[in-house]
Simulated scan of single mutants.
Amino acid sequence: MSKKTLVIGASEKSERYSNMAIRSLRQHGHEVKAFGLRKGKVGDVEIFKDQKAVENLDTITLYVNPANQKKLYDYILSLQPKRIIFNPGTENPELAKLAADKNIDVEYACTLVMLSVGKY
């Protein structure tokens, strides 16, 4: 089943984990939206840099360090995803608590590993 996913911290650079995640999500048949510092494209996925509304979002997967997440709290929470995945290096207890308070599931995991073992 496709899970509409927003990748936050998206990059066109193929060596970046966010880029690998976008490609893997698409290969696994998920609808992907991507938010980053610069506009661009990864395969068929446009990277936007404005805080656009994304409807019916299942998952937000984070590739932004905790210090840079602060300015995104309101945006992330306003999207009302079902869950937020904190990839390695993005762990943030403050945002995790804000999300949990809004009944958003929080996972400390690696999106790439989850996809590769069928647990996404």
Rank of each mutant, 00 (worst) to 15 (best):
N68W: 11
R38S: 12
L95S: 09
K52M: 12
D74A: 15
M114D: 14
H30R: 10
H28C: 11
G9W: 03
Y73T: 12
L57M: 11
N92M: 09
K52L: 13
D105T: 13
T90E: 05
K70W: 00
L95Y: 05
R83L: 04
I47D: 03
A100R: 11
N19P: 04
K49E: 14
G43A: 00
V117C: 11
V7A: 03
E15A: 12
G40I: 05
S78A: 10
L62K: 07
Y120P: 05
N56T: 03
T111M: 08
R38G: 06
S14P: 13
K13F: 01
L112G: 07
H30S: 07
I8G: 08
S11Q: 05
V54R: 08
E94D: 15
A67S: 14
P66N: 01
D44C: 06
L112V: 03
A100C: 00
E46Q: 13
K52Y: 12
I8D: 04
F48Q: 12
A34M: 07
V113M: 13
A109P: 05
K102I: 07
Y75D: 06
D74E: 15
K3M: 14
T61W: 04
G40E: 01
K39M: 08
I84G: 08
D44I: 11
K52W: 08
D74P: 00
G36F: 03
T5H: 10
L77W: 01
L62Y: 02
R26Y: 00
V7C: 03
S18G: 04
L37R: 11
N19D: 02
L25Y: 01
D44E: 14
A34Y: 06
V7E: 05
A53H: 13
Y108K: 12
P88E: 05
K102L: 07
L37A: 10
Q69W: 03
Y73L: 03
T61S: 12
I47G: 03
E55L: 11
K49I: 02
V7R: 07
G29A: 09
L95E: 03
K70C: 00
T5F: 10
A96F: 00
T61A: 00
R23K: 15
I85T: 08
N87A: 00
A53W: 00
K70Y: 11
F48K: 12
I47Y: 01
D50Y: 09
V54L: 07
D101F: 09
G89A: 09
M114L: 15
I60S: 02
A99G: 09
D105P: 00
A109L: 05
K71C: 04
F35Q: 00
L57V: 07
E107C: 09
N87M: 07
S11P: 10
S14E: 14
K49S: 15
S18V: 05
L98A: 12
V42M: 10
P93W: 03
A96K: 11
K119Y: 11
Y73H: 15
D74W: 06
M1G: 14
G9K: 03
K102V: 09
K3N: 13
L115M: 06
E12T: 15
E15H: 13
S18H: 02
N68K: 15
A21F: 11
H30I: 02
A96H: 02
R26A: 13
C110Y: 02
S11Y: 08
L95N: 03
